[in-house]
Simulated assay, not measured.
Amino acid sequence: MVLHGCTQTAAVYDACSGWSRLADDCGFALLLPEQVRSNNSNLCFNWFNPADVIRDSGEALSIRQMVEHMIERCNVDRSRVFITGLSAGGAMANVMLAAYPDVFAAGAILAGLPYMAASTIPEAFDRMRGYGLPGTDALQAKIRGVFDHQGPWPRISVWHGTKDDTVVPANAMAIVEQWRGVHGSGRHPSSTKRRGSRTLQIWKNASGRRVIELHTLSGMAHGAPLDPAGGYGRSGAFFLDVGVSSTVETARAWGLGGSKLPTYSVDGIRAAAASALRWTGLIPRPRS
């Protein structure tokens, strides 16, 4: 399931993110709900409205019903249902993960916000700017209080740019803090890896299972990180070419497509570019 951001349509989000093309290539079912202006004039999912974010109520219930329809229509494995979204869609993805942890195996939150961090529109704007974010204990209590879940909790992946002035990066860490409680993870990440402009922090649970990831993109503004050169997605408003595809990386982490997913290294891209230049005659071929 893929949730678009404010002012976007499902079709625009799909075309720019590359999810449909990836689903066609790798053979998984895809669902893209779309907000309507009668619910929100800016086409934002109402991630902050108390009536829309609790289990079996409002927009959360509507989205859950869409998931159930897809499971039955497409004969989907119930243990392999995933959700992602950008901005307000990312915040709503977090809502669904918190309200329906028994439905989703994992989720990816792009430039989103913590669950139940706001309850009014003014509060929503404050939280987006980093003002008044609840503390760790309060955030974790929100997750525990929504549903008496006894099974495994969804794995969480958070993506955020360091130059995001729309939803400031403090929200990314707040999401991590919120989910550490139910996963029983320590305050500090189990490992930190740096790959180009991306820093990946990983939290594991007591059994050593990888349960929370934080992808921080240095210098990236508000949007979804993409790598159009890899064949999936295209640049546009809030779709940012930063050389790493959150779409492909998320699908790989969820085991969607297996070996069909592309793998691109810096050296591989340089080699392909050099080959293309030689083919056009712009640089000489090496003599044999």
Score class of each variant (00 low, 15 high):
43 L>F: 00
163 K>T: 08
70 M>T: 15
229 A>K: 06
273 A>R: 13
76 V>T: 05
80 R>D: 13
82 F>G: 12
153 W>Y: 14
42 N>V: 00
250 T>Y: 12
276 A>Y: 04
129 R>K: 14
119 S>C: 04
199 T>N: 02
198 R>I: 14
108 A>H: 07
124 A>W: 06
220 M>D: 01
169 P>G: 08
257 G>A: 07
109 I>A: 10
216 T>G: 00
234 R>C: 08
86 L>W: 05
10 A>Q: 00
24 D>F: 11
153 W>G: 02
16 C>A: 14
117 A>K: 08
274 A>K: 09
128 M>P: 10
180 R>K: 15
275 S>R: 15
160 H>V: 09
123 E>A: 13
275 S>C: 12
252 R>Y: 11
53 V>L: 09
75 N>C: 04
87 S>Q: 10
244 V>R: 12
77 D>L: 09
203 W>E: 07
181 G>E: 09
226 L>A: 02
98 A>F: 06
217 L>Q: 06
277 L>Y: 04
169 P>E: 02
118 A>M: 11
277 L>K: 14
74 C>G: 01
63 I>E: 00
162 T>E: 13
280 T>K: 03
125 F>S: 08
96 M>Q: 13
7 T>K: 00
273 A>M: 14
127 R>F: 06
125 F>P: 01
239 F>S: 10
110 L>K: 01
157 S>H: 02
177 E>M: 10
123 E>G: 13
71 I>F: 01
72 E>L: 12
214 L>M: 11
226 L>G: 01
81 V>F: 05
186 G>N: 10
279 W>H: 12
278 R>P: 01
259 S>N: 12
246 S>A: 15
83 I>T: 15
121 I>L: 13
176 V>W: 03
62 S>A: 15
43 L>G: 00
192 T>C: 07
212 I>M: 02
77 D>I: 11
46 N>P: 01
231 G>M: 01
52 D>H: 01
277 L>R: 14
163 K>H: 11
100 Y>T: 15
36 V>A: 00
21 R>V: 04
77 D>N: 14
154 P>L: 05
72 E>F: 02
274 A>M: 14
122 P>H: 00
52 D>W: 01
263 T>P: 00
142 K>Y: 13
